[in-house]
């Protein structure tokens, strides 16, 4: 849950100023730091990033009456459904987020090869 929140907040902040792919290093680093289990690391990255797109996409869709999302959803083609488009976008970035976070976690497992306890993270957290 903490990892999810961290990824969601950090990735959202990064994307406000940096290109969209900045979420990859962010999620890798956080997965590395706070990952506890493979499944959890993936889910936290997936949900954190999916939400970081779903919320603003839904908000933009709503406040502009779907004026452009409906057209793009016709083009792609998703039957002109702007909500579906926001969902597909969220799944896409969620996948990237999940893979990033998981690879961060796996990387740490490879380096320390120890039990799945956030030793280094905990140590850094309480200086």
């Amino acid at each position: 849950m903490l990892l999810f929140l961290l990824i969601f907040l950090a990735a959202t902040g990064a994307q406000l100023f940096l290109p969209w792919w900045s979420v990859v290093p962010v999620a890798v680093a956080l997965g590395f730091w706070r990952g506890t289990r493979s499944g959890r690391a993936f889910l936290a990255g997936f949900a954190g990033l999916a939400l970081s797109w779903l919320l603003p996409a839904a908000w933009l869709h709503l406040r502009t009456d779907g004026i452009l999302s409906q057209r793009v959803a016709t083009l792609l083609p998703l039957g002109g459904n702007g909500w579906l488009l926001a969902l597909v976008a969220a799944l896409l970035i969620g996948l990237i987020g999940g893979l990033s976070s998981l690879s961060g976690y796996w990387l740490r497992r490879a380096i320390w090869n120890g039990p799945p306890a956030p030793v280094s993270g905990a140590a850094r957290r309480q200086p």
Binding site: Q15, L16, P19, W20, W21, W53, P56, A57, L60, H61, T64, I67, L68, S69, V72, L85, V88, A89, L92, I93, I96
Partner: peptide, 14 residues
């Protein structure tokens, strides 16, 4: 990725 991002993609043009 670029195109569907609500931070930099097409959503900003609505």
């Amino acid at each position: 990725g670029k195109f569907l991002s609500p931070y930099q993609g097409f959503w900003r043009n609505a």
